[in-house]
Computed example of a mutant assay.
Amino acid sequence: MSFLDPDLSGPWAAVLADRYARADSVSLLRAMILDVFPGRITLVSSFGAESAVLLHMVSRIDPDLPVVFIDTGKLFGETKRYRDQLTRHLGLRNLQIITPDPARLKAQDPDGMLFSRKPDACCFWRKVEPLERALAGYGAWISGRKQFHGGARADLQRFEAVDKRIKISPLAGWTRDQIAAYFTAHDLPPHPLEGEGYLSIGCMPCTARAESGASVRSGRWQGLDKTECGIHLSLSEARKRANL
């Protein structure tokens, strides 16, 4: 079975969900990478607090799989150093670092402070638009989202159809304890900021420490009516949210 027609991405998501309903995460990834979308799938990773799990799985299936990393220009230095550490540690051979378009940033965020005025627009130009460019030509991409993160992710399915691509979340049903157990079982290095109370790590200006006992993503965009950056919306929805 191979993915042929992007216009049929909606029906395909349902077909894949049914066919792989009983597959564990590694078996699911192996099938998607090697059989269903060979040469047309990528892993998008933030190299955040939980990212090493999927990266480790992928490294054991195909270390040459493209791994897309969006460097927004506002990331913690610790995240970029962790990215380099994990890439070496896991033997990943196809890391693709994508950056915002300089001309668009100059026009839309000349002082670098758009995050303080229009955070959704900042996310669009620094994350959504670069990712859309990076995904050109792919039929599917792999995401690390999980239901236990709550909010819009609480009802997350393993297969979704968005903008004529299949989005795959192999860890959708995993718990926080399962993530921790996988780190221990495979001796994976933690993100250096996790020990300082950062449980979900994005751009530096919009990421804070989570309060004790709070939800994983409670440190993101604190004080704002915002819980997602927009890369998991359709492109039209992300544009609308950013008032573009």
Rank of each mutant, 00 (worst) to 15 (best):
G197I: 02
R220C: 01
E211R: 06
L55S: 05
L244N: 06
F115S: 05
M1H: 14
V67R: 06
G139V: 13
A238N: 09
D24Y: 03
L188K: 04
G39N: 11
I98V: 15
P66Y: 04
S169C: 11
F148A: 08
P6M: 08
D71S: 01
L34Q: 14
S212R: 14
P189I: 03
A238E: 09
E196G: 00
L135R: 02
F124V: 03
R117T: 04
Y82W: 00
Y198V: 06
P66H: 05
K164G: 08
L235P: 07
F115K: 03
L105F: 01
W221R: 04
S215W: 11
C123E: 07
A121L: 08
L193V: 00
L54M: 07
A52H: 09
S143T: 05
V26E: 15
A134V: 09
V216E: 14
T184L: 14
D84L: 05
A103T: 10
A13V: 04
R30L: 12
K118V: 11
D5W: 10
G48M: 01
L105A: 01
R117Q: 08
E160D: 13
K240I: 10
L65F: 07
F124R: 04
N94I: 12
R217M: 01
R22W: 07
G219P: 04
R40Q: 13
I98G: 05
F148D: 06
T207K: 03
D187M: 15
L75Q: 06
I70A: 03
C229G: 01
F183H: 07
T99F: 09
S9V: 10
I98Y: 04
G39Q: 10
A140S: 01
V36I: 15
T72Y: 03
A107H: 10
Q178Y: 13
S200M: 01
K226Q: 12
I97Q: 05
D187R: 15
V58Y: 03
V67W: 05
E196D: 06
V36Q: 08
A181H: 14
L8C: 14
E196Y: 02
L16W: 11
F148V: 05
Q222Y: 07
D225I: 10
I98P: 04
H56N: 15
F3K: 13
D155G: 11
D177C: 09
M1E: 14
A17I: 09
I179Q: 07
V67H: 10
R209D: 00
G91L: 11
L86M: 12
L55K: 03
Q222M: 11
A17Y: 06
V44W: 05
D101K: 02
L199R: 07
L131K: 00
F69K: 00
I41R: 14
F47S: 02
P192M: 00
R22I: 08
G112V: 10
S116G: 12
I97T: 13
P189R: 04
S116Q: 15
P110I: 00
W174Q: 01
V36N: 04
L188W: 07
G195T: 00
A180N: 15
A31H: 15
D7K: 12
L199K: 10
H149G: 00
L29M: 12
V26C: 12
M113W: 13
R117H: 09
L8Y: 11
I168K: 13
G173N: 10
R83W: 07
G139D: 13
F115A: 10
A210V: 08
G144D: 02
V58I: 09
